[in-house]
Design a protein around this nucleic acid. Structure first.
Length: 223
DNA sequence: GCGACAG
DNA sequence: ATCTTGTCGC
């Protein structure tokens, strides 16, 4: 396949104009979702996992795994084009849609303000939050690795997200609004989902499911 | 030209 | 992202 990056860049810029940084959802959340994407067989197969958990108890309600042939390479700044097809597939299998979705990757903390969380939020018309394990762009003041520390992630004069120390002695998380949510609410909800681990529960479960980690194995064995 | 660069 | 055991530190 041939890839026209200039075209994709334009597409991102146009879509970014439609992203809403206004809370446009019912803040009384009953279900919260998480996503994670992995790859198999040298990257030829994309595996996307989506989980729905109850809130605030975080009991697993439903999860789905979609396996699709990988159709796009990894290019920094264009991650969503590689991962959203599999995520859409997994989403369509959900019987109960969550009220809010935590997506692994950036929201508007992106060079063109359209990270995968924002892109997916637009495609699904859902409130989303970007929860990334590393930085794509922006600057911030390095903080002591004490749980709870938060500092703004800046690009020039603009705040594009937050750097959150979710747990002691761990690398921080990069939180940003995805779609239909404000920056301050994005930070708020991620904090509400922390239970002593570096990753918020929806992301932690999606990660465990996508990679068949011990947390997920125990869950399967228990039922 | 050089370094940075979600997953 | 993925291939992979033990090991060090809190």
């Amino acid at each position: 396949m041939s890839i026209n990056l200039a075209q994709l860049k334009l597409s991102q810029q146009q879509l970014a104009e439609q992203v809403s940084l206004v809370d446009n959802f019912n803040p009384t959340i009953k279900l919260i979702g998480g996503t994670d994407v992995g790859f198999e067989q040298d990257g030829t197969v994309t595996r996307a996992a989506i989980v729905t958990l109850t809130y605030p108890d975080f009991a697993v309600v439903e999860y789905h795994i979609a396996r699709l042939e990988t159709s796009f390479p990894y290019i920094p700044g264009y991650l969503s084009f590689r991962e959203y097809p599999a995520l859409l597939n997994a989403w369509q299998q959900l019987k109960q849609k969550p009220d809010l979705l935590l997506v692994d990757g950036q929201g508007v903390a992106h060079p063109r303000r359209l990270g995968i969380a924002s892109h997916l939020g637009l495609l699904l018309d859902m409130p989303t939050i970007g929860v990334a394990k590393s930085k794509l762009c922006g600057q911030y003041e390095v903080q002591p690795k004490l749980a709870g520390k938060v500092t703004p992630l800046l690009d020039k004069q603009e705040q594009i997200g937050w750097v959150l120390q979710s747990k002691n002695n761990c690398n921080p998380l990069f939180i940003s609004a995805g779609h239909k949510i404000s920056q301050i609410s994005a930070l708020h909800w991620v904090k509400q989902c922390l239970r002593g681990y570096r990753l918020p529960e929806p992301t932690r479960w999606a990660d465990a499911i996508a990679s068949n980690k011990p947390l997920f194995r125990k869950f399967n064995h228990a039922k």
